[in-house]
Design a protein around this nucleic acid. Structure first.
Length: 574
RNA sequence: GCAUCGAUGGUCUAGUGGCAUGACUUAGGCCUUCCAAGCCUAUAGCCCGGGUUCAAUUCCCGGUCGAUGCACCA
């Protein structure tokens, strides 16, 4: 079957958008190169992302190493949770999930067993692929993280990060100081992540090395109203929530205000980023008709998450592709790093007025305790501070030893103290974008083949802000001083930081087609009227219409067409 | 990863145990006053490794990549 995917990937290869990686040695599945036009397009999409998150939201970008030490991934859960217990059937060589086989054979909690235990459990069970009893099989843990070693002698394990998110968590204290100790704040990262997929087969949809753009927004757990919610409160878009999926009804089109009020979306933060994501995806060229937001069902929702939605993009080849995840991850990540590192991952939130609290404090009488208990006295005093003594004294445990402390050895004081505030572990709102998937979606949704004068025309209808080449400049004829004028115009456009490309090769029609194919939105042609009138023709990629425009105001005009502040349709010939 | 099928200039493709087709593209030239026109010329290819053979792009084995099915999948 020759589908649109093959045509797009052929175009992408031929024109320098996407290539298989390291082809001269034979490529490896799950790795791609972005060619000259692909890199430029990717950068423009990333810059649009930055415009939304860094410039508008004010969440600054950071850049952390792609290799992390083991502790990070112990805390994040990737070392454990990102592993599959697998085995290979000795009869049919099929790779199988060992824990699934065990559970199928009635073993409870198989995934929590070790490799050796699991191998014992499944040796009497049949292989689900060939039916033979497995017998003597080795169970091994396959982790989706790439492992490496840091420094010589491989003393220290390192892992290539499976997501960029952890960097924002590990830098939490620094970020908190940077944002002057107050919530909410956020940080973002755009960069490579790595997952050693078992069989990455869907071209650039499932890569072993891919680019993520993630934001981690730290909010007060009890204050989940977005300060700028009004921006998207009336934004209306289709949501496929849990009720719609369970009732198998279509997505409901609803404003973000209503979605939060009705409890479909957990809070304003999540709703805000659902809308922002919709806005962003459409801005970079995703077809809104082929975009939906689907809520995670209770069984796919991580246990700690409060709410999670995927932006899914419809691809002719791959169906609905998860491209963005937007989750309220609560305090899970920060708590985990707090426990693992022993460092503080909380924010001190002062009360508006300090609260008076009555406290009962047990103060040891060291003058009496010291001589009697000697070395243990300090431990006993500490234990007393935590204890709740009865009338006749208290029994405390020190190193497993029960010790009775009579009331003459301590004092119980009741006092009133000022409590100025409390330590709070923020909740994390995480929008996470798969940039490569976005790029594929934009390519597929922009791609069109149409008949023009009985000839097929291939065109990428990119939004102008995404196009790698922004304007092409042609001399109509390759003589009579026309090329010189066209070159001079090209230079002027470039000086204004517009990506302009001069082309004088072949017939004019061919040159238009070349640019159509790579999505260049506009073309300027210097013709025989140019020297006399100071005008050139401006040709619009999508309509193929032309207008004459003045050359002296060209850079301003092109700039406004590119940033969307004016449109081709509104132009009148000069 | 398993099974099946496939891999020929940049792209699409013909074909073969002995010199490897054609089209498009690209580059140079001629021509050309706005949408892949025409003419001339040039560049460029049998996925990788091993085996069989006088000789392998072709046959055999292994690998890589791709498609399909199975398995797996934040």
């Amino acid at each position: 079957m020759s589908d649109i995917y093959e045509n797009i990937m052929e175009l992408a290869r031929r024109r320098g958008f996407i290539w298989p990686a390291s082809e001269c040695y034979g490529s490896v599945a799950g790795f791609i190169d972005y060619g000259p036009l692909g890199s430029m397009m990717k950068r423009r999409i990333e810059d649009t992302w930055r415009e939304f998150y860094v410039v508008n939201e004010g969440y600054y970008e950071i850049e952390c190493p792609t290799i992390g030490q083991e502790d990070i991934f112990i805390a994040s859960g990737h070392l454990k949770g990102f592993s599959d217990l697998m085995c290979q059937c000795p009869h049919c060589n099929e790779y199988l999930r060992a824990d699934h086989i065990a559970e199928g054979g009635g073993v409870k909690n198989a995934s929590s067993l070790g490799c050796a235990d699991l191998a014992r459990e499944i040796r009497t069970l049949p292989c689900p692929a060939c039916g033979e009893v497995l017998g003597d099989v080795e169970v091994f843990s396959f982790n989706l993280m790439f492992q490496t070693s840091i420094g010589p002698g491989s003393q220290r394990k390192g892992y290539l990060r499976p997501e960029t998110a952890q960097g924002m968590f590990t830098d939490f204290q620094r970020l908190l100081r940077f944002y002057r100790d107050s919530l909410p704040f956020g940080a973002v990262q755009i960069g490579k992540s790595y997952r050693n997929e078992i069989s990455p087969r869907q071209g650039m949809i499932r890569l072993r090395e891919f680019t993520q753009a993630e934001a981690e927004i730290f909010v007060h757990p009890a204050r989940k109203k977005h300060p700028n919610f009004s921006r998207y409160a009336e934004y209306r878009m289709p949501l496929l929530g849990i009720p719609q999926q369970q009732g198998e009804t279509p997505a409901i089109v609803i404003t973000m205000r209503d979605a939060v009020d009705r409890g479909l979306v957990a809070n304003e933060y999540v709703a805000y980023y659902l809308a922002l994501t919709h806005d962003l995806l459409v801005t970079v060229g995703v077809n809104p008709e082929k975009l939906r937001f689907r809520q995670h069902l209770p069984d796919e929702l991580a246990h700690y998450a409060e709410d999670c939605w995927d932006a899914e993009i419809l691809s002719e080849r791959f169906g609905w592709v998860e491209t963005v995840g937007i989750a309220d991850r609560t305090d899970y990540d920060l708590k985990a790093h707090g426990t693992q590192s022993g460092e503080r991952f909380t924010v001190f939130i002062p009360y508006e007025t300090p609260r008076k609290e009555r406290r009962i404090r047990v103060v040891a009488n060291m003058g009496a305790l010291g001589p009697r208990f000697r070395g243990k006295a300090k431990a006993i005093a500490d234990a007393l501070a935590e204890a709740v003594p009865g009338k006749d004294g208290v029994t405390i445990g020190i190193d497993g030893e029960e010790i009775f402390i009579s009331p003459d050895l301590y004092q119980v004081r009741e006092e009133e103290v000022d409590v100025p505030g409390e330590e709070v572990t923020p909740h994390v709102i995480e929008p996470s974008y798969g940039i490569d998937r976005m790029i594929y979606a934009v390519l597929e949704h922009s791609y069109a083949e149409e008949m023009v004068h009985d000839e097929e025309r291939t065109v990428l209808r990119f939004p102008p802000r995404i196009s790698p080449i922004q304007v092409a400049v042609f001399p109509l004829m390759n003589r009579d001083g026309l090329p010189e004028i066209a070159r001079e115009i090209t230079t002027r456009l470039k000086a204004a930081r517009i990506m302009a490309e001069f082309d004088d090769s072949g017939a004019i029609g061919r040159r238009y087609r070349r640019q159509d194919e790579i999505g260049t939105p506009f073309a300027l042609t210097v013709d025989y009227e140019t020297p006399g009138s100071g005008t050139v023709t401006l040709r619009d990629r999508d309509s193929m219409q032309q207008v004459r425009v003045r050359t002296d105001t060209l850079t301003e005009l092109i700039r406004s067409l590119l940033d969307g502040s004016s449109s081709f349709a509104s132009l009148k010939s000069a």
